[in-house]
Nucleic acid binder design. Structure first.
Lengths: 219, 219
DNA sequence: ACCAAAACCTAACACTAGTTAGAAAATGTC
DNA sequence: GACATTTTCTAACTAGTGTTAGGTTTTGGT
């Protein structure tokens, strides 16, 4: 166990980044080792020095994709005060999730496009990570509901599926240079939270009232 | 033009259905003509009697997928009274969309999983259909906003992207036998509409108030 | 029973896939 | 500068790809 196999992390990352881009564009079967090698300025055979098979490569890409999201969101939530409201937590989580998946967009998109086509064993392993991320969200929502911030009759599980579905879809249309992540996160939170907020309990935090702009008359 | 090339629509559909299932499971490049043939109880060469290439097959699958959704939603909307509310329209459209994509789930999933990997020309052709579907939703939302039903400060384009993203994601987790489409549609509508509804304008339609169940105290 | 059209099959083509063994280059250490 | 280690390349093998040409069977109308 005292081997000193270092294997130059930077070359490894070069191959991994290239793989993510190619997997993203051509899917699992459509991705060839030769195409990855081209993208990474290598010859096909050389990849096998870093990864021992195509499957090990896609597995690494998948894990990086979900891990980045989990870490980013977890850290953002930890930075919140203990008594943060459900709204704050959701806004924070949405913003962090969007930042993460757009930051490492190649990996996220690769994951989305390839997940259904990957060998069962690899998919199952990655699925465990995704499920643990799902429970993270479930906890936030259930907590807020228990505290009376969210409607008691809301189906939290379905709401969570709705939120994560919409979030994950973002990478398909979000293009850097257009809308900012802040804008998207704010608008998204507004749609989701103001739908979950218990109106019977009266308005709690701010940001629910339209800021300025033209007011529409009621009837 | 007076040819009588009928080409037995039922065989053609058998091949198409098989193709949808295989494309769904293995992606564009991962799908082999031999696998489709197997699934359709044919030999690979025979497929070429019905479709002249793999590309023509995937193109047909993609078009069927989006067309089914467009038709179902359009018909459901047409059946509504002229003065239907925005809430009603959204609930109807969500329900119809879900019904359609789950009904032809193989095609929808195939589309989702394969879209990014298909030759550019085919994708562009199918994209036009999808864009026209997008404007349909945009119209519903903008109309409701103009009538003062939805918050004036809501970004309709973003809201639409969220809704369609979440809807399209449904096929990934929805399993027949569990939740009903009605349940999912109702909950989704509730999350979306009660988030879009202008609270300044007061409650308009019903279904916003929690029906029965335990009421949560405010603070 | 006959026959043409429709539907399917067989066998092969040129090509590309993942992977590997072994040689060659690059790198760093003394 | 020599030498061992790390990294890359070359060239090949087998297996499987989309597609096609031409033959065989099935079908349905007369």
């Amino acid at each position: 166990m005292t081997k000193k196999l270092a294997k130059s992390a930077i070359s490894q990352k070069r191959v991994l980044d290239a793989a993510a881009r190619i997997f993203r564009d051509f899917g699992y079967a459509g991705t060839t080792m030769r195409a990855i090698a081209d993208e990474a300025d290598l010859k096909a055979g050389s990849i096998y020095y870093h990864y021992k098979s195509k499957d090990e490569l896609i597995s690494a890409v998948l894990d990086i994709g979900i891990h980045a999201v989990i870490d980013t969101v977890q850290n953002a939530l930890k930075a919140l005060p203990e008594d943060a409201s459900g709204r704050q937590r959701i806004e924070t989580a949405i913003h962090a999730h969007l930042s993460a998946i757009i930051d490492i967009g190649d990996y996220t998109l690769a994951t989305r496009r390839v997940f259904g086509q990957v060998p069962e064993a690899i998919r199952a392993k990655n699925m465990r990570l995704r499920n643990s991320y799902g429970s993270m969200w479930q906890d936030i929502l259930v907590e807020a509901q228990k505290r009376g911030e969210f409607r008691a009759d809301a189906n939290i599980t379905l709401a969570r599926l709705f939120i994560l579905g919409a979030l994950n879809w973002t990478v398909e249309w979000f293009k850097p240079g257009g809308r900012t992540i802040d804008d998207v996160a704010r608008e998204f939170s507004s749609v989701v939270v103001d739908g979950l907020l218990d109106k019977q309990a009266g308005e709690i935090s701010g940001s629910a009232q339209p800021p300025s702009g033209p007011r529409v008359r009621a009837i």
